[in-house]
Amino acid sequence: MNLLTFFGLVLKSSLFSTGGMGNVAGLHDDLLPRGWATEREFAESLAVGQVSPGPNGLWVVSFGYLLGGLRGALLALAAICLPPLLVLFVERLYRRVRDHPAVEGFMRGLALAVVGIFFVVLIGLLRGGGGPGVQSALIVLASLGLGITRRVPVFLIIGLAALAGVLLR
């Protein structure tokens, strides 16, 4: 894997998405065909990103480490720090165009498309999962249910799932 190209691809997919996990879809699209990452590595780093502190978008740091070691992780971190700097530009632009309706329309369309594609990514993750189908389906539902209550911290949900996996093996 070429680390500079990796940096460029992380930068590109982060520039064309919003939110910390919006870039999953673009990276999925770019890295799988190249054979630089597997579904499994996506799933592994997304899981670590959920457990560790900070924005969920830091999953990319974990991803970079799995693919390219410490240098991969640092390059990935640099790549996800650059796009948010555009907020300074967005703020200035916003003062000028905030009344133009097409701007709001574009942002909404983008947000909805990001979610639609995110579903595709989730399907891919499940395919690369490897656990028995019934067990996986039950865990999806259980974690969704626990998440909806908003009472259970995310890292506890992940921890419970890991424990269940070890006990049920």
Partner: peptide
């Protein structure tokens, strides 16, 4: 590996919640 096989669907379940939260405002 057994733990991860269970963590992946949990990530997907939490991801569904994130998807809902992202889609709701627009």
């Amino acid at each position: 590996q057994a733990a991860l096989n269970a963590v992946i669907p949990a990530t997907v379940g939490l991801g569904l919640l994130t998807a809902y939260q992202m889609a709701r405002p627009p």
